[in-house]
Write a protein that binds this DNA or RNA. Structure first.
Length: 417
RNA sequence: GUGGGUGUAGCUCAGUUGGACAGAGCACCAGGUUGUGGCCCUGGUGGCCGCGGGUUCAAGUCCCGUCACUCACCCCA
């Protein structure tokens, strides 16, 4: 085969379309229910937007971005995430002048040059929700609930939030310092990756998966005990809201986000039978990011959820969407005059909004019927010599096998019943 | 970037210690009913056995390389 799809990309075939249609429908319904408006930023932006937005020390920026120069020698990058582009859109189009919060969402492809594995691709489709300009913990609850409701309506069982606070510039540095000090006293016990993390991204130490690191993690200082008063109060109120709604959650001290810009709330939604690596979504608050990208100091919170992962999980959990409807009518024909009648009829049916298709070529009636059967047609209309002479159509019900002869002028009204 | 597994028909896979034209099921096409589907039966289309090199009288089978897929790590949705 000469051409094949690029590593880490995939084709969505007809069999999978019902999943996509269902998820798109639920997204449209739920975002409307919560009052979020759709925006669609372009899929590439100036590279510097992502470098500043995502944070300089993460792998995403260092080696995972699809960065290229265009013919004008501008450095552009296929978006590796949504948030930075959203903020640019928000600032550029004056959405920041609207009353707060400004609540938006989008669905579309994002790109990262990673090694593909289960539920991970170089191009994947992300559902992203953001709320700008509101710091009330009830805002956090609302954004989290959008994600929750999507998975609940798709039929996932045993949903649970994983929740943590990652602090703010006032308190996090102190915590990180404590964490580093602690790890300095356990250097001989930790893995090589963790030694690297200690220098680069100390919070990441906490979700190391190496067995020998687990005892060290277990007795490490916990961030929720080192929050400043502002962050601690915010966290407490969010938990009270979750309790109020009786939404199950686990305080997960090991839950940290890879991107530098997160502050306070970080969360994931887990579903039954799905491991921590298959969190349905990841999100959190980023109260400093908008200012960092050139706006007024503005709080923000959002999440991203990979559609391919949702579908993967739906398949694992045997959550099947309804099949998309097939054509109702197949028009079969034997002989050249009959084919002309078939052509006219199939167009007439479609203009009456009846889904119809005709068979092509000179084929036996048997094979045309097989095709109708395969397509799950409700009716097959047969044209041959007899129908041509009498100006009628033979209409056969594919479910019960009954058939009637209908005068052509009455055909549409007969089938509309 | 690191490590493990796997590459044979459109799909799922068999191919015995290297040995004769490379197989099955499903799918597709045709016939069994020259105007009637699903079930059944018969036949057919379809493979440089991922690619390149090597060993050998002989390679789908063994060796090396490479690419791809896949799982895990790193990182992250």
């Amino acid at each position: 085969m000469k051409y094949k799809s690029v590593t880490g990309t995939r084709d969505v075939l007809p069999e999978e379309q019902p999943y996509w249609r269902l998820i798109e429908k639920k997204i449209a319904e739920i975002t409307a229910l919560f009052g979020y408006q759709r925006v669609d930023p372009p899929i590439f932006e100036e590279t510097s937007l992502f470098i500043r937005g995502v944070g300089e020390t993460t792998d995403i920026v260092e080696k995972e971005m699809y960065t290229f120069r265009d013919k004008g020698d501008s450095s552009l990058t296929l978006r590796p995430e949504f948030t930075a582009g959203f903020i640019r859109l928000y600032l550029q189009n004056g959405l920041h002048m609207l009353s707060k919060p400004v609540k938006v969402f989008s669905v579309g492809p994002v790109f990262r040059y990673e090694r593909p594995q289960a539920g991970r691709f170089r191009q994947h489709t992300q559902f992203n929700v953001e709320a700008f300009g509101e710091q009330d913990p009830a805002m956090d609850l609302e954004v989290m609930s959008v994600a929750w409701q999507l998975y609940a309506e798709l039929g996932f069982q045993g949903l649970k939030f994983q929740l943590n606070s990652t602090g703010c510039p006032a308190c996090r540095p102190h915590y990180i310092e404590k964490l580093k000090q602690y790890y300095q006293t356990h250097l001989h016990e930790i893995c090589e990756d963790c030694k690297r993390r200690l220098e680069r991204n100390a919070l990441r130490l906490l979700d190391c998966k190496v067995a020998s690191c687990q005892p060290v993690i277990a007795t490490a200082p916990v961030i929720s005990e080192h929050l400043c008063e502002d962050c601690a109060t915010h966290f407490t109120h969010l938990r009270q809201h979750l309790d109020l709604l009786q939404r199950p959650y686990t305080i997960n001290h090991k839950l940290v986000r890879g991107l530098d810009y997160y502050t306070k709330t970080v969360f994931e939604v887990w579903a039954q039978g799905i491991g921590s690596q298959n969190a349905m979504c990841g999100g959190g608050r980023y109260d400093g990011l908008i200012e960092q990208l050139g706006g007024e100091p503005t709080p923000g919170i959002g999440f991203g959820s990979g559609i391919e992962r949702i579908i993967l999980s739906m398949k694992e959990q045997k959550l099947q969407p309804e099949l998309l409807p097939g054509p109702q009518i197949v028009v079969a024909h034997l002989g050249p005059n009959a084919e002309k009648m078939a052509v006219e009829t199939v167009f007439k049916l479609r203009s009456s909004k009846i889904p119809a298709l005709m068979t092509f070529g000179d084929r036996s009636l048997k094979s045309q019927m097989r095709e109708a059967n395969r397509l799950n047609a409700q009716f097959i209309i047969i044209f041959a010599d007899h129908e041509v002479e009498s100006g009628t159509a033979t209409v056969k019900n594919m479910q019960d096998g009954s058939q009637v002869e209908i005068a052509l002028p009455d055909l549409v009204s007969h089938l509309s019943k």
